[in-house]
């Protein structure tokens, strides 16, 4: 049975096609229309696999745009899908920490990849990818340069977590002559502390997978590991974990129906 998972995120659309234990995927920008992005990603994926719509047994949609795609069979939240996908990639996990462009979440997972509990910050951009982008811009950098530049720097305490106000705090610190790398390290540490506090409410995970765009930032990853007192696993496929989970849930759905 062949199934497809579509993850319509705020920045990128991810599509995964699963057959048995093998899968193919693609990542495209979402743009302004999740509906169109979803359709295009789906058709491109079919083209890559040399398949037709009729060959696909079940499609699960996830991500914030899941409600705007009419051709999916079922919508499932990104929380459930992320857990499923991350568990498929790393079998022994019991926690997923995901920091994306607009929100951050911590998911506790059982040994089957099912969610047992979760916590989420989606009220503001504090501590997300957007937050780091704003900091990078204030420092005249690209977000991808932050980790490298601040390696081994002594973090300076910053007090603001608000994306708008932290920019002026950064500017005052620069005016005081504080080195850039120390400011970046401080910001990384504050992002990590915030997410770690959220994670600890769910109980400490033993095997934690770190996903989402911010997982690429080694600085945040290191501080987060220190805060939680354990190493975090980062897998190269972490960005497609949600879409992969969606396609796997679609597989389960098909099996359930054939019983």
């Amino acid at each position: 049975m062949i199934t497809v998972g579509l993850d319509l995120g705020s920045v990128t659309t991810k599509a995964v096609l699963v057959e048995g234990n093998s899968w193919i995927s693609l990542i495209r920008p979402t743009g302004y229309s999740p509906r169109q992005a979803g359709r295009e990603a789906f058709e491109e994926l079919l083209g890559n696999a040399g398949l037709k719509r009729g060959d696909i047994g079940f499609i699960v949609g996830t991500g914030y745009g899941r409600i705007s795609v009419p051709f999916i069979d079922q919508a499932v939240t990104e929380i459930t899908c992320h857990a499923k996908g991350a568990h498929f990639l790393v079998k022994e996990i019991d926690m997923v920490i995901d920091i994306g462009g607009q929100d951050s979440k911590v998911i506790a997972v059982d040994r089957f990849g099912n969610v047992t509990d979760f916590a989420m910050n989606d009220r503001c951009a504090a501590g997300t990818g957007k937050f780091l982008e704003v900091i990078a811009a204030a420092l005249g950098l690209d977000v991808s340069e932050l980790a490298m530049l601040s390696k081994n720097a002594d973090p300076i305490q910053t007090s603001n977590m608000c994306t708008v106000f932290v920019e002026s705090e950064v500017i005052s610190l620069l005016a005081e002559g504080v080195k850039r790398e120390r400011i970046i390290a401080g910001i990384h540490q504050s992002v990590a502390a915030r997410v770690a506090a959220m994670a600890e409410r769910l109980g400490k995970g033993e095997h934690i997978v770190f996903t989402g765009g911010v997982a690429k930032n080694e600085g945040v990853r290191e501080f987060l590991g220190k805060e939680l007192g354990r190493d975090l696993l980062v897998v190269p496929e972490s960005q497609i974990a949600g879409a992969l989970g969606a396609a796997l849930l679609a597989q389960e759905e098909v099996k359930l129906k054939s019983l």
Binding site: V76, T80, D103, V115, T116, D117, F118, M120, D122
Partner: peptide, 16 residues
């Protein structure tokens, strides 16, 4: 203003 975010959390909670 936060209906969309609440819906995601509540949906995930109902799924669990």
């Amino acid at each position: 203003s936060d209906l969309q975010q609440l819906q995601t959390r509540i949906s995930a909670f109902i799924e669990v």
